[in-house]
Simulated assay, not measured.
Amino acid sequence: MRISEVTESSGVPATTLRYYEQLGLISSTRAANGYREYGSEALEHLRFISVAKKMNLDLEQIKWLLEVTETGTCTNTRDTLHPVLTERLREVEDSIRNLVELRAVLVSSLDHVATCPDSSEPCQSECAFKSLT
């Protein structure tokens, strides 16, 4: 397949395909006319990359996981992928906890600011964030 066909089939822009190729995530050969030609494995890799990106894995991790899936057995792939996904899940759960805490602080601050009286006096910085002290 030419780059335009891969782009059309995958929805991935040609610039991204070239970038992924530079990083070694996908590969192509060159036809006699100089055009890139991709095999069907390029589409498989692009699907893999798409799912991995939805998990917020970085491109280095994705490249490593692609190498594992290509060279290893299903058991090896599972055993390699499991701790990566476990760690990613832990990171997401930590982020959720932090966001819940941030939300509580913002709600409390918003409630406090909403009850501040009108005044022509200079405002003290602790007035707006009194609920945090």
Rank of each mutant, 00 (worst) to 15 (best):
M1Q: 06
T7D: 04
S9N: 01
G11D: 02
V12D: 02
P13A: 06
A14P: 01
T16N: 08
L17W: 04
R18E: 01
Y19W: 08
Q22Y: 03
L23C: 05
G24V: 10
L25I: 08
S27P: 06
S28P: 11
S28F: 02
R30I: 12
A31T: 08
A32N: 14
N33W: 09
G34V: 07
G34Y: 11
G34C: 11
R36H: 05
E37T: 15
S40R: 14
S40F: 15
S40P: 15
E41T: 15
A42Y: 07
K53G: 03
L57P: 06
Q61P: 04
Q61E: 14
I62G: 04
L66A: 02
E67N: 12
V68R: 05
T69K: 14
C74P: 03
T75G: 11
N76M: 15
N76S: 15
R78C: 03
T80W: 02
L81S: 09
L81M: 14
H82Q: 10
P83W: 01
V84P: 03
L85H: 05
R88I: 00
R88H: 08
R88Y: 06
L89F: 02
L89E: 09
L89Y: 03
E91M: 08
S95K: 14
I96C: 05
R97S: 08
E101D: 02
R103Q: 13
V105K: 13
L110M: 10
D111F: 00
D111S: 09
H112W: 08
V113W: 07
T115P: 06
P117L: 09
D118V: 07
S119C: 06
E121G: 11
Q124L: 05
S125Y: 03
E126Y: 10
E126S: 06
C127R: 00
A128W: 03
A128T: 10
S131A: 10
S131F: 12
T133H: 08
